[in-house]
Computed example of a mutant assay.
Amino acid sequence: MNKKTQPSEKLNVPIRRFVTNRLIAVNKNSSIQDAASRMVEFNISSLGIVEDDNVIGIVTDKDLKKRGLAQGRSPKQSVSEIMTHDPITADISSSVLDVLKLMSKNKIKHLFVTENGKVVGVTTLKELEDLDLQGLETFIAR
């Protein structure tokens, strides 16, 4: 096995190894303030938006700033007013490389991961960048 290919081989593993075990979400009728509080409580940068136990959207830190505060919205307004509808998803068996390509193509940093059509977790560009850096650091250390 060629040592030079090791970091890129890590990108071919299924995304299932790098997905949060549970999705943190709020109801679409929750307030923007409730969504922000939940994100702070769990120290996360994105939040699922649900209706009838189905994920219908996503809100990120950037959404809170650009679509919320910067546009003068009240923290009491519904989070559904600033969410991204129909978020981009990837199947849990997708490779890390495919997920990175999907995120790059759609210019997103947060991606829901699905299994059998249901959202089972989320992954972020930061987590995946850290994965590749870890692989490179291990390679360099050898």
Rank of each mutant, 00 (worst) to 15 (best):
V99A: 14
I108K: 07
V96D: 09
K76R: 11
K109P: 11
S93H: 14
I108D: 10
T89R: 06
T89A: 05
E115T: 02
Q77F: 08
K107E: 15
S104Y: 09
L97G: 07
E115Y: 09
K101F: 03
K76C: 04
S94R: 07
T89N: 12
R73I: 05
G72A: 06
S80Q: 08
I88W: 08
K101G: 00
S93V: 09
R73M: 14
I88R: 08
E115I: 01
L102H: 11
L111E: 03
S104F: 10
S104K: 14
T84N: 00
V79R: 01
M83H: 11
R73G: 04
I92F: 13
I108L: 11
D91L: 13
T114C: 06
L100W: 01
S104N: 11
S93I: 06
N106R: 11
G72P: 05
T84A: 06
V79W: 02
E115M: 05
I82Y: 07
K109C: 08
L100F: 07
S78C: 11
S74V: 10
S80F: 06
I108M: 03
M103V: 09
L97C: 02
V99H: 05
K105H: 08
D98W: 00
L102C: 09
G72R: 04
S104P: 05
T114V: 11
S93W: 07
K109F: 14
I88V: 14
S80R: 03
S94G: 10
D91N: 15
H110M: 05
E81K: 05
L111T: 03
D86N: 15
L97H: 04
F112C: 00
L100V: 03
I92L: 13
D98M: 03
V113S: 02
Q77A: 10
D86T: 15
K76D: 15
K101W: 01
I108F: 06
S93T: 15
P87D: 07
L111Q: 04
T114G: 04
V96W: 01
R73N: 12
I92W: 14
R73C: 09
D86Y: 14
I82L: 07
L100D: 03
F112Q: 07
I108N: 02
A90P: 06
N116V: 01
L111N: 01
A90V: 06
I82M: 08
I92Y: 12
I82A: 12
P87H: 06
P87N: 01
S74D: 15
I108P: 02
E81A: 09
S80I: 00
L97S: 07
P75Q: 10
K101Y: 02
D91P: 13
S94H: 11
S94Y: 04
H85I: 05
S94L: 01
E115H: 10
L102N: 05
K105C: 02
S95M: 02
N116K: 14
R73K: 12
N116R: 04
H85E: 11
T84L: 01
S95P: 01
N116M: 05
R73Y: 13
